[in-house]
Amino acid sequence: MSSQRPRCPECRTPIRESEINQLQLAPCSGCNSLLQVELFPAFFRASSAGQTADEVLLEGESTCFYHPTKKAVLPCSGCGRFLCSLCDCDLGGNHICPTCLEAGRTKLKIKNIERQRTRYDNIALALVFFPMILFYVTIITAPLVIVLTVRHWNSPPSLIQQTRVRYVIAIALAALQIVGWGVLIVVLIGMFYAR
Protein backbone atom coordinates (compact mmCIF):
# COMPACT_ATOMS: atom_id res chain seq x y z
CA MET A 1 0.00 0.00 0.00
CA SER A 2 1.06 3.62 -0.22
CA SER A 3 3.14 4.07 2.90
CA GLN A 4 2.40 7.76 3.17
CA ARG A 5 -0.70 9.61 4.09
CA PRO A 6 -2.32 11.52 1.25
CA ARG A 7 -0.87 15.01 0.97
CA CYS A 8 -1.85 18.32 -0.56
CA PRO A 9 -0.26 18.54 -4.03
CA GLU A 10 0.56 22.21 -3.41
CA CYS A 11 2.10 22.37 0.06
CA ARG A 12 2.54 18.62 0.87
CA THR A 13 0.67 18.99 4.17
CA PRO A 14 -0.95 15.68 5.17
CA ILE A 15 -4.66 15.85 4.40
CA ARG A 16 -6.97 15.72 7.38
CA GLU A 17 -9.22 12.72 7.85
CA SER A 18 -12.27 14.95 7.70
CA GLU A 19 -11.31 16.04 4.16
CA ILE A 20 -11.01 12.57 2.63
CA ASN A 21 -13.81 11.15 0.43
CA GLN A 22 -16.16 14.02 1.21
CA LEU A 23 -16.98 14.65 -2.48
CA GLN A 24 -16.77 18.39 -1.94
CA LEU A 25 -14.05 21.02 -1.83
CA ALA A 26 -12.50 21.79 1.53
CA PRO A 27 -9.61 24.12 2.38
CA CYS A 28 -6.20 22.55 2.92
CA SER A 29 -4.90 23.12 6.46
CA GLY A 30 -1.51 24.11 5.07
CA CYS A 31 -2.10 26.44 2.14
CA ASN A 32 -5.88 27.00 2.13
CA SER A 33 -6.20 25.71 -1.42
CA LEU A 34 -9.57 24.09 -1.96
CA LEU A 35 -9.11 20.34 -2.24
CA GLN A 36 -11.30 17.37 -2.95
CA VAL A 37 -9.55 14.09 -2.26
CA GLU A 38 -10.96 10.70 -3.08
CA LEU A 39 -9.13 7.57 -1.95
CA PHE A 40 -9.88 4.12 -3.31
CA PRO A 41 -9.11 0.68 -1.81
CA ALA A 42 -5.99 0.39 -4.01
CA PHE A 43 -4.40 3.15 -1.92
CA PHE A 44 -4.35 0.84 1.08
CA ARG A 45 -3.48 -2.32 -0.81
CA ALA A 46 -0.10 -3.79 0.14
CA SER A 47 2.20 -4.13 -2.83
CA SER A 48 3.17 -7.74 -3.39
CA ALA A 49 6.81 -8.67 -3.69
CA GLY A 50 8.00 -9.87 -7.09
CA GLN A 51 8.30 -13.58 -7.65
CA THR A 52 11.64 -15.31 -7.70
CA ALA A 53 12.23 -18.34 -9.85
CA ASP A 54 13.09 -21.68 -8.26
CA GLU A 55 16.25 -23.47 -9.19
CA VAL A 56 15.97 -26.84 -10.88
CA LEU A 57 16.44 -29.56 -8.27
CA LEU A 58 15.70 -32.82 -10.04
CA GLU A 59 17.14 -34.21 -13.23
CA GLY A 60 14.53 -34.17 -15.99
CA GLU A 61 12.52 -31.25 -14.61
CA SER A 62 11.29 -28.78 -17.20
CA THR A 63 13.43 -25.69 -17.35
CA CYS A 64 12.77 -22.16 -18.51
CA PHE A 65 13.67 -21.47 -22.16
CA TYR A 66 15.41 -18.21 -21.18
CA HIS A 67 16.91 -19.42 -17.86
CA PRO A 68 18.10 -23.02 -18.20
CA THR A 69 18.81 -23.33 -14.49
CA LYS A 70 15.35 -22.18 -13.39
CA LYS A 71 12.30 -24.40 -13.07
CA ALA A 72 9.57 -23.86 -15.65
CA VAL A 73 6.15 -23.11 -14.18
CA LEU A 74 3.98 -22.66 -17.27
CA PRO A 75 4.15 -22.39 -21.07
CA CYS A 76 3.88 -19.14 -22.98
CA SER A 77 0.39 -18.61 -24.46
CA GLY A 78 1.95 -17.14 -27.58
CA CYS A 79 4.83 -19.39 -28.57
CA GLY A 80 4.53 -22.37 -26.22
CA ARG A 81 8.00 -21.99 -24.69
CA PHE A 82 8.36 -22.96 -21.05
CA LEU A 83 8.74 -20.04 -18.71
CA CYS A 84 9.95 -19.59 -15.14
CA SER A 85 8.11 -17.19 -12.82
CA LEU A 86 10.60 -14.43 -13.67
CA CYS A 87 9.82 -14.57 -17.38
CA ASP A 88 6.07 -14.93 -16.94
CA CYS A 89 4.34 -11.73 -18.08
CA ASP A 90 0.75 -11.87 -16.90
CA LEU A 91 -1.50 -9.80 -19.14
CA GLY A 92 -5.03 -10.11 -17.86
CA GLY A 93 -4.82 -13.85 -17.44
CA ASN A 94 -2.68 -14.50 -20.52
CA HIS A 95 0.83 -15.67 -19.66
CA ILE A 96 3.36 -14.76 -22.33
CA CYS A 97 7.13 -14.47 -22.61
CA PRO A 98 9.01 -11.17 -23.00
CA THR A 99 9.68 -11.89 -26.69
CA CYS A 100 6.00 -12.38 -27.47
CA LEU A 101 5.21 -9.29 -25.43
CA GLU A 102 7.56 -7.14 -27.47
CA ALA A 103 6.37 -8.67 -30.73
CA GLY A 104 2.78 -8.07 -29.70
CA ARG A 105 3.54 -4.47 -28.93
CA THR A 106 5.37 -3.70 -32.18
CA LYS A 107 2.89 -5.61 -34.39
CA LEU A 108 -0.12 -4.23 -32.50
CA LYS A 109 -1.46 -7.70 -31.73
CA ILE A 110 -1.85 -7.21 -27.99
CA LYS A 111 -4.41 -4.82 -26.59
CA ASN A 112 -3.50 -2.11 -24.14
CA ILE A 113 0.27 -1.96 -24.48
CA GLU A 114 0.55 0.29 -27.52
CA ARG A 115 2.28 3.49 -26.42
CA GLN A 116 2.06 5.70 -29.47
CA ARG A 117 0.85 6.04 -33.04
CA THR A 118 2.07 8.17 -35.90
CA ARG A 119 -0.54 10.41 -37.51
CA TYR A 120 0.12 9.69 -41.17
CA ASP A 121 -3.11 11.48 -42.12
CA ASN A 122 -1.81 14.72 -40.59
CA ILE A 123 1.57 14.22 -42.24
CA ALA A 124 -0.17 13.83 -45.61
CA LEU A 125 -2.25 16.97 -45.04
CA ALA A 126 0.82 18.94 -43.99
CA LEU A 127 2.68 17.78 -47.11
CA VAL A 128 -0.24 19.01 -49.21
CA PHE A 129 -0.72 22.41 -47.57
CA PHE A 130 2.60 23.74 -46.38
CA PRO A 131 4.54 23.33 -49.66
CA MET A 132 1.93 25.55 -51.37
CA ILE A 133 3.76 28.50 -49.83
CA LEU A 134 6.54 27.80 -52.33
CA PHE A 135 4.32 26.26 -54.98
CA TYR A 136 7.08 24.77 -57.12
CA VAL A 137 7.92 22.33 -54.29
CA THR A 138 4.52 20.73 -54.80
CA ILE A 139 5.80 18.97 -57.92
CA ILE A 140 7.74 16.75 -55.52
CA THR A 141 5.40 16.67 -52.53
CA ALA A 142 2.16 15.92 -54.39
CA PRO A 143 3.28 12.45 -55.60
CA LEU A 144 4.79 11.85 -52.15
CA VAL A 145 1.40 12.50 -50.57
CA ILE A 146 -0.28 9.94 -52.80
CA VAL A 147 2.38 7.33 -52.07
CA LEU A 148 2.17 8.01 -48.34
CA THR A 149 -1.61 7.85 -48.30
CA VAL A 150 -1.78 4.60 -50.25
CA ARG A 151 0.98 3.07 -48.15
CA HIS A 152 -0.66 3.94 -44.82
CA TRP A 153 -4.35 3.73 -45.77
CA ASN A 154 -4.77 0.68 -43.54
CA SER A 155 -2.50 1.85 -40.73
CA PRO A 156 -4.28 2.22 -37.37
CA PRO A 157 -5.97 5.64 -37.30
CA SER A 158 -6.00 8.11 -34.46
CA LEU A 159 -8.06 7.00 -31.48
CA ILE A 160 -9.65 10.44 -31.34
CA GLN A 161 -10.40 11.05 -35.02
CA GLN A 162 -11.12 7.61 -36.35
CA THR A 163 -12.07 8.53 -39.91
CA ARG A 164 -9.99 8.65 -43.09
CA VAL A 165 -11.37 12.03 -44.17
CA ARG A 166 -7.95 13.61 -43.94
CA TYR A 167 -6.49 10.99 -46.26
CA VAL A 168 -9.27 11.66 -48.76
CA ILE A 169 -8.70 15.42 -48.61
CA ALA A 170 -4.94 14.96 -48.95
CA ILE A 171 -5.30 12.68 -51.99
CA ALA A 172 -7.82 15.03 -53.63
CA LEU A 173 -5.63 18.09 -53.16
CA ALA A 174 -2.48 16.25 -54.23
CA ALA A 175 -4.27 15.04 -57.36
CA LEU A 176 -5.33 18.63 -58.11
CA GLN A 177 -1.75 19.79 -57.69
CA ILE A 178 -0.49 17.08 -60.07
CA VAL A 179 -3.17 17.99 -62.62
CA GLY A 180 -2.20 21.65 -62.21
CA TRP A 181 1.43 20.85 -62.89
CA GLY A 182 0.44 18.75 -65.88
CA VAL A 183 -1.57 21.62 -67.37
CA LEU A 184 1.27 24.07 -66.69
CA ILE A 185 3.83 21.86 -68.39
CA VAL A 186 1.58 21.34 -71.42
CA VAL A 187 0.99 25.08 -71.71
CA LEU A 188 4.70 25.83 -71.43
CA ILE A 189 5.54 23.25 -74.10
CA GLY A 190 2.83 24.68 -76.34
CA MET A 191 4.22 28.17 -75.89
CA PHE A 192 7.73 26.92 -76.64
CA TYR A 193 6.71 25.30 -79.91
CA ALA A 194 4.54 28.26 -80.87
CA ARG A 195 7.54 30.60 -81.06
Partner: peptide, 10 residues
Protein backbone atom coordinates in the same frame (compact mmCIF):
# COMPACT_ATOMS: atom_id res chain seq x y z
CA UNK B 1 -8.05 -1.57 -10.44
CA UNK B 2 -4.83 0.42 -9.90
CA UNK B 3 -6.18 3.93 -9.28
CA UNK B 4 -5.30 4.88 -5.71
CA UNK B 5 -6.56 8.44 -5.51
CA UNK B 6 -7.98 11.30 -7.51
CA UNK B 7 -7.38 14.80 -6.20
CA UNK B 8 -9.07 17.99 -7.36
CA UNK B 9 -7.31 21.20 -6.37
CA UNK B 10 -8.56 24.62 -7.37
Amino acid sequence: RDIQSITIKT
